[in-house]
Design a binder for these strands. Structure first.
Lengths: 235, 235
DNA sequence: CGAGATGTTGACGACCCTCAAGTGCAGTGG
DNA sequence: CCACTGCACTTGAGGGTCGTCAACATCTCG
């Protein structure tokens, strides 16, 4: 049994389920998708989903827990985080091999979609639906990355941290979790690497935002007290 | 007649032409695409392609010249640059309205693809091909944005500028232009906004890289003298 | 409960932003 | 053709911000 307070996406909030990909196809019961999707597969903290250079075979959806992705094969350079309900690996569609390494940040579970089996299992009409969904998901991912690029490029550390906390909240909210109260799945050092800051700076800026009563941070638990003021910092 | 030394993508290097989207469909001559694609449409410096909030109707491809995109409707915050051969607007596919504003950085020309007409003009089989192409293009765009996010988050200004120059060279090369000798289409101030730096810092770092003989910069003309050393800076 | 990892704090210096003045370049009109 | 003018670019000085290093506190998990 999962412990309390761990975010789990309901299947109806799942980015895969919530679309033609699973819902639309299953309701018609044309083909069994069990050979294409492995549901709710458990994964342990630190376990890799794939390494940079591995062949691109699957698309993953975070069901509970969360994932981190590293540039290349080194764990030094943090590329991004994947929260419950978000897709991992969509930017590698169309490539032979993965460009990055993804690992679980904590114990959790994933849905795993077999890409080559998917294409074989579908008739033309459903393939169009699935492709349209994937296209929109990839475009959505690109917009999210744009936001992250702007965030990373903000002129000072305080703004970057404020934007980071705000952005995480928005992403949690998109999949049905509270935007103003959540638990950070990653360490201070991982936040620092992600934002291009020193870990000490991350800590100091969290403290500064807390001293202004914009947020409350107790180790990994985050409460956003004044979201308007936090957003106003980013102008 | 275009002046000398202005990058123009040949149609065979064009990101649209080079795929099923144009090449595959035209060779079969199933349908005339003239109602779907406006080719080589001239555009003047500063002219907008679309504003944030405009309905998403077209996809653009830069044929000659280059484009800039701004966050929202303000020209303060630079979101990205689009070089010849690159696609503009793909991250808004699936959305009703554009999330950003795109303008021409210099006189040039575009190909313009009408999205709703495209879908109507294609039979199912070709639609699958086109969708697959667009999906891969969107995924490719996401990988590019990942690179840019890492670049923007580098710990010091010298590395960001080095990465920026190197990245631009790589992108020119992808569409058949020299990687080590090109003309910057954007101002120092636009580079600064894009990288989250002050314009003066951009200038000073360009000068520092030049003093080490890694690059030569004369206003907007860039020569990369030592690409290995430049890349080594980014470790 | 103990040990190692993670998080926190303080001092100091390098880096980069701000402000202000000066230079070069492109387009315009005489 | 040349001076003029506006804008982008460049340069310098000074101060705030953030990275580095080292010591300490706290948390987590066996």
């Amino acid at each position: 049994m999962p412990s309390r307070h761990i975010p789990i996406v309901l299947c109806r909030n799942c980015a895969l389920y919530n679309t033609a990909l699973i819902l639309g196809l299953e309701s018609q019961e044309k083909k069994p998708l069990d050979q294409v999707v492995i549901r709710n597969h458990p994964i342990e903290k630190g376990q890799p989903l794939f390494h940079a250079g591995d062949p691109v075979r699957h698309l993953y959806l975070v069901h509970s827990g969360s994932c981190i992705s590293y540039q290349g094969n080194q764990s030094r350079q943090v590329r991004g985080f994947h929260l419950p309900g978000e897709v991992v690996g969509i930017e590698d569609l169309g490539e032979k091999r993965h460009s990055h390494t993804a690992c679980a940040l904590e114990d959790g579970s994933l849905c795993q979609l077999d890409l080559s089996r998917l294409e074989k299992a579908l008739d033309q009409e459903d393939l169009i639906k699935v492709q349209r969904y994937l296209l929109h998901a990839a475009a959505r991912h690109a917009r999210q990355l744009q936001q992250e690029r702007l965030l990373t490029g903000l002129p000072n550390a305080e703004q970057r941290i404020a934007a980071f906390l705000y952005n995480l909240g928005q992403r949690f909210q998109e999949h049905g979790f509270p935007a103003l109260s959540y638990r950070l799945p990653m360490s201070r050092e991982e936040i620092a690497s992600y934002l291009g800051l020193a870990p000490e700076t991350v800590i100091r800026m969290l403290k500064r935002l807390a001293s202004r009563e914009l947020v409350r941070v107790r180790t990994r638990q985050v409460e956003i007290l004044d979201p308007e003021a936090l957003e106003a910092l980013l102008s």
